[in-house]
């Protein structure tokens, strides 16, 4: 019994350690808009939300992503936007996260 308990604790601890280092990341969706011919300046925005016990009450964390991109390209257009929506599992059921990343190119004055 003691050996089984210690094995179980070791397994749980190992899973927690492995999960906490990186998290298991999987892609949920992606989209890519027209990529411009001028690709010198890249801009990037990210939205991240951590969930505890799968509770999430709103998705407002993605609302200002367009603004984040626009702030990095105040006098131009942001084109060729690749949007990646990732799900991250740190520990099953208990700790999850969502990350949405958008990266594109700032094209001047079009």
């Amino acid at each position: 019994m003691k050996i089984q308990t210690s094995k179980l604790l070791f397994s749980l601890g190992f899973m927690l350690l492995m999960g906490s280092q990186a998290g298991c990341v999987h892609l949920q969706s992606l989209s890519q808009s027209t990529i411009p011919s001028e690709r010198t300046q890249m801009v990037r925005a990210e939205a991240y939300r951590f969930y505890f016990l799968m509770f999430n009450f709103n998705n407002d964390y993605v609302n200002d992503m367009a603004e984040q991109l626009a702030n990095q390209c105040p006098k131009g257009h942001v084109k060729g936007v690749l949007t990646k929506h990732e799900g991250i599992t740190y520990f099953p059921i208990i700790a999850h996260a969502t990350r949405v990343e958008a990266r594109g190119y700032c094209v001047a004055g079009q």
Binding site: M18, G23, C24, H26, Q32, I35, L82, K84
Partner: peptide
């Protein structure tokens, strides 16, 4: 078994396209 920490293959595919 689900152990992966990044989705860089998407960025690599985009770079190949470009």
């Amino acid at each position: 078994m689900g152990f992966v920490g990044q989705t860089d293959y998407v960025d690599q595919a985009r770079a190949k396209l470009e």
